[in-house]
Every structure is written in structure tokens, then in C-alpha cells.
């Protein structure tokens, strides 16, 4: 497993040094959220009601922007060829890269969300729930996104195609991410929706690397 953690460490180090990608994602997150009141009007009651949905959708779109780089540069500079010769199975290579993406993109976006909640007059009491759902839900974003990133490594118009492929896969995460937040206001609490959100992330963690590795093997040819 040393090779696995070495790869995770390298990807984190690259993400930190490149910096720009994360900065772009965070900036995109901010501007999408800031555009919403301009389109919907400054009614604070309306905004606070739909804030969780806006934040989740903006987070998905921002994460989508950064998915492309999971495999693309490694494919272009020949690193993927070397990965294919490692004792570490390609499934675990894909898992390591998705994990690094979650650590460097999913977590920062989730941490930024409450700050943006202020712009939307989101009730302060929902901040912990919002952050919890995002932290638990974003692994699905990275691991399902890795499938799309792997499928479009060689594609023309990769970015647009990636959105078309990946966004439908995010539907369950989005639905349950929101459902946890709305359930937290009700009497029954967040229990079941939160567990289902976790389950979706776990399924994605299992399924994503398998499908991504299959897609990468096809493109190594």
C-alpha cells in the first residue's frame, strides 16, 4: 500500500504547487452563488429557503471544473503508462487519484460553503448540517467524477462531455444532500437520509475506481 499513499501524497503536493486549479474552483463556486441573488431577486426569505440547493449545485459545478485534471495530465505526459507497469493495480491508482481529488477539492469546497451561506442568508443553525452533508457527500463527487474523467481522457471537447456524463450520476448525491438539510429542520431528524447519503458515497468509492480503471486500460491501447 506504500505506492498508494505515495501517489496520494504526490497528487496533493502537485495540487498545492499548481494552486491555480483549486483557486479557480473556489472562485467559480463563489461567483455562481453570487450570481443567484442577481437572477432571483434580493428577497432574503426566498434566498435562505433555497440556499442549500444553490450551494450544493454550485459545489457540483465547481467540482466538475476540476475533474478533468484527475487523469488528463498524467495521460498527456506518459505518466499513465508507468502507472500501468506498477504492481499497484490500476483500480487502486484510480482510487488514489480520486482520493487526492477529494482531499484537495471536495474538502475545501465543503469548508467554503458556510461562508457563502452568509451571502444567501442561510440560517446559522444549519451550517453544521450543511458542512456535514458536503463532507460526507463529496467523496461521491470525486469518485463518480473519476469515471467521467477517465472516460474522456482521449475525447475531443472533453470538458463539456464530462459534464454531460457525470452530472446525471450526481443526482442521488444532490437529492440526499438536500434532503438531509431539509430533514434537519423537521422533527424526525437527519438519521435515515444521512445514512443513505453515506451509502451513496461508499457505493461510489467501490464502483468509481473499477469503472475508471477499465476506461483507462482501454485508452492505454
Amino acid at each position: 500500500m506504500n505506492a498508494f499513499w505515495t501517489l496520494v501524497g504526490r497528487d496533493i503536493r502537485l495540487a498545492v504547487r499548481e494552486g491555480g486549479a483549486l483557486g479557480t474552483a473556489l472562485g467559480f463556486f463563489l461567483i455562481v452563488v453570487a450570481m443567484m441573488p442577481l437572477g432571483l431577486g434580493p428577497d432574503l426569505n426566498l434566498l435562505s429557503r433555497i440556499a442549500p440547493g444553490i450551494l450544493w449545485i454550485a459545489l457540483l459545478l465547481a467540482a466538475l471544473l476540476s475533474l478533468g485534471r484527475i487523469f488528463e495530465t498524467d495521460y498527456e505526459d506518459g505518466t499513465l503508462d508507468v502507472f500501468a507497469t506498477a504492481s499497484l493495480p490500476l483500480e487502486l491508482v484510480a482510487a488514489a487519484k480520486a482520493l487526492a481529488h477529494w482531499l484537495t477539492t471536495g474538502i475545501p469546497l465543503a469548508l467554503l460553503a458556510p461562508v457563502l451561506g452568509v451571502l444567501l442568508n442561510l440560517d446559522v443553525k444549519t451550517y453544521p448540517v450543511l458542512m456535514a452533508t458536503m463532507l460526507v457527500g463529496t467523496p461521491a463527487v470525486s469518485f463518480l467524477g473519476a469515471i467521467g474523467a477517465a472516460l474522456t481522457v482521449k475525447a475531443r471537447r472533453g470538458g463539456l462531455l464530462l459534464a454531460l456524463i457525470v452530472l446525471p450520476l450526481y443526482v442521488p448525491t444532490l437529492i440526499f444532500g438536500i434532503s438531509v438539510i431539509s430533514a434537519s429542520a423537521g422533527p424526525s431528524g437527519v438519521g435515515s437520509s444521512f445514512l443513505i447519503l453515506m451509502a451513496i458515497s461508499l457505493i461510489s468509492i467501490a464502483l468509481g475506481p473499477l469503472a475508471a480503471a477499465a476506461a483507462l486500460r482501454i485508452q492505454l491501447q
Binding site: I147, L169, V171, P172, I175, I200, I203, L207, A214, I218
Partner: peptide, 18 residues
């Protein structure tokens, strides 16, 4: 084909969540 099979795995979850 890989995407189609991923779809098969995810579709029931999407159906359930919707």
C-alpha cells in the same frame, strides 16, 4: 460500453432517490 454498464449500476440508485 463501460459507461453503459456504469449507468446500469447507478440507474436503480437514481430511481430510488428520485
Amino acid at each position: 460500453a463501460v459507461l453503459a454498464l456504469v449507468g446500469v449500476a447507478i440507474l436503480p440508485i437514481i430511481k430510488f432517490s428520485v
